[in-house]
Design a binder for these strands. Structure first.
Lengths: 219, 219
DNA sequence: CCTCATTGACTGACTAGTCAATCTATGCTG
DNA sequence: CAGCATAGATTGACTAGTCAGTCAATGAGG
């Protein structure tokens, strides 16, 4: 509902005139939320960062919550579309997962603040925004699970591991990777981002163990 | 520092008399934090839940923050000790990871509220408690990474996957599993918990893919 | 002069943390 | 053993500050 507050028509009209204040507020909010956290920051911080008056935030958004809702939904929808697209293609499951991992890592590379906000304030906020956007979040898991299910049906993936579970593990591994970057626990930089894309997929698809005969007794 | 506020001696003395109010406050806080979230709840909620006066919370704890700090450190220390123990034993890496997964899942089974609080309010709270306890959290990752490194040295695990990274993926998969239960996205119940223990390890160690060398045909 | 954008001072509600008073257990003293 | 002292436990009304959201006024374009 929040995403529809300002009709596309008006947003377009704005572009002709001065800068789009609504967009400036959203962009400022990303920075403020990322640096201070949603709860710790004040609405005035967002207004100041955006260079607009306090009240203007409430002209474009019904509440502080709605600012975050908007940011999340904007980005999450893009991700869901992307996964659906990948899902529909005719490629090996590993490549599909690879594409998803790439997209998420690139999202982080492109706008780390936004991804930090989405993950920290929504996706993992079980008592607040995570609940309100649970349906959206769930969709991502389900789409990934579908990929796994399909791969199992054609024999590429083991049938013994529940698809919904595999989806959680895969997504969890990716998010933890971003968390590592967010917390400064993993090294940043383009080559690390690229390597990370491959590493998650290799870990989850190929496994950590060496494929010794029958993988029964290591060593 | 918070953990040491009440000397063990006095805590023991308390046991002789009435109930340990400090403990009651901590236990109540777990329930309140789990149900409402740290930020959303008031200190009076904790006091009410514990059945004590508001001021008593501040007799035992310097601040609302310190209550959560105490809860986290108490439990996290137990987990670190457990991982160190496992780490020192002479067993295959897969079994070690299995033991860690079991411990965490059992922790959740035993006290879901506490684990929810630790994960949601600390481990994943990049802008608040996650930062203050970063050193503790990091230790867990490093210990797990050590297990992976050792396994790689003896050839049981592939050398191409960075150990620290594998540790993040493994831990991330487990936490995501708990998140699934917390959000009500994965089925609860003893058999599911048991299965989950095996599933994470099988996914991360064995991988999702079927072993191409005609090892198995699922179904 | 109408509409929408923009401003920022102000209000109303909320809550972490304080503190002075009261209670309770224990032990000491004469 | 009664009486008293001391220290810690317990109480909850109160303070001081914060901040989300409101609104009346002003500005600008058509």
């Amino acid at each position: 509902m929040s995403a529809g507050r300002v009709p596309a028509a008006r947003a377009g009209a704005r572009a002709k005139n001065g800068p789009d204040k609504r967009r400036m507020i959203l962009d400022a909010a990303v920075r403020v939320f990322a640096n201070q956290g949603f709860h710790a920051c004040r609405v005035s911080d967002i207004a100041d960062e955006a260079g607009v008056a306090y009240g203007l935030v409430y002209h474009y958004f019904a509440s502080k919550d709605e600012v975050l809702d908007t940011l999340f939904l904007e980005r999450w929808d893009v991700m869901l579309q992307m996964i659906r697209q990948v899902d529909s293609e005719q490629r090996p499951a590993r490549e599909k997962l690879q594409a998803i991992a790439s997209f998420i890592v690139d999202s982080y590379r492109h706008d780390p603040d936004l991804m930090k906000v989405i993950i920290v304030e929504v996706t993992r906020a079980a008592n607040s925004f995570g609940q309100t956007h649970l349906a959206q979040i769930r969709q991502a898991y389900e789409l990934i699970a579908q990929i796994v299910t399909a791969a199992q049906a054609e024999g590429a993936f083991k049938g013994e591991i529940d698809a919904e579970f595999a989806a959680m593990a895969f997504y969890g591994a990716i998010e933890q990777m971003l968390t590592g970057w967010i917390f400064g626990l993993l090294p940043l930089g383009d080559e690390h981002f690229e390597r990370a894309k491959w590493l998650v997929v290799e870990t989850v698809c190929g496994g950590l163990e060496t494929t010794t005969a029958g993988n029964t007794l290591p060593q």
